[in-house]
């Protein structure tokens, strides 16, 4: 197996992440022409929003258009246009005189809204900082025992400016960097001791029930067959164990307070 893939798989397994989750944090590019969507939104709010709601999710009189089969089946405004131009008098919807371009804009606005609702990878978090920064500071210096590894004037200096709050919150829970750039960071290490007593340590590259592999101090890839759980002896050192242990006991309020505190470390 390609060394790079093997490393990525190991890191992925350690982090519990898949690379695609990392990439998913990037908002998806708009599927429909943003200029047309913006014009369509303006026209929709002005002409249609009174009945269908300004977000097209339904109002007092008109149905939710994001779940409408007419809209879902529409292609480039053709189906939507028929309803706009003719109206639905039997349901109390008047007809609207609109140009073809206006109809295409409204269709693009509706299709982009549906795409955004359906594409969970494009969802944006809101203002997540709701915690009490002073309670977070007290936790940091007290019950959280964070100072045993971290310092707000050292490794965490300016961390509130470095990351978005949501990233900061996720990283305080589990700081492991992942993805291709992680290959430059020694994260999890292993010591393998053979029956003859020779011990080799270094960044862990792979481990399963049958093989363990690491990069030794010379930078060389070394692998060992595992004959049993104890031959050779394998000790994995996970520097993030304190975080793994904390996750089992954290309350959501403690997490929110800590985030609120870390955000202030600009």
């Amino acid at each position: 197996m390609d060394m790079r893939i093997l490393l990525q798989r190991t890191l992925r397994a350690i982090a519990g992440f898949s690379i695609c989750v990392a990439l998913a944090a990037q908002p998806a590019p708009p599927k429909y022409d943003p200029v047309s969507v913006a014009r369509g939104q303006q026209a929709f709010v002005a002409s249609c929003g009174f009945c269908h709601g300004s977000r097209a999710k339904g109002g007092e009189k008109g149905p939710d258009l994001l779940r409408s089969v007419v809209v879902l089946d529409d292609e480039n405004g053709k189906g939507i246009g028929r309803v706009i131009l003719k109206g639905r008098p039997e349901k109390g919807m008047p007809k609207f005189a609109m140009t073809e371009d206006q109809i295409v804009d409204i269709a693009n606005f509706l299709h982009q809204s549906i795409y955004s609702a359906a594409d969970r990878d494009s969802y944006q978090t809101l203002n997540i900082v709701t915690g009490d920064a002073s309670a977070g500071k007290a936790y940091f210096n007290g019950a959280g025992n964070c100072g045993s590894c971290h310092s707000v004037t050292g490794d965490l200096k300016g961390i509130g400016a470095k990351y978005e709050p949501v990233t900061l919150q996720d990283r305080l829970l589990m700081p492991l960097d992942f993805g291709p750039s992680a290959s430059t960071k020694a994260v999890v290490t292993v010591t393998v001791t053979t029956p003859s007593g020779e011990a080799v340590s270094g960044p862990l590259l792979w481990i399963d029930d049958f093989t363990v592999a690491l990069r030794n101090s010379q930078g060389t890839y070394v692998s060992f067959a595992r004959k049993s759980d104890v031959i050779p002896q394998v000790e994995v050192h996970n520097p993030f164990k304190p975080h793994s242990d904390m996750i089992l006991h954290f309350s959501d309020a403690e997490i929110h307070n800590l985030t609120a505190y870390l955000v202030t470390l600009k």
Binding site: G16, K57, A117, R120
Partner: peptide, 11 residues
């Protein structure tokens, strides 16, 4: 509508 929330895998 849809998922209505974002999920961030932690560990």
């Amino acid at each position: 509508e849809g998922y209505a929330a974002a999920e961030k895998y932690i560990t």
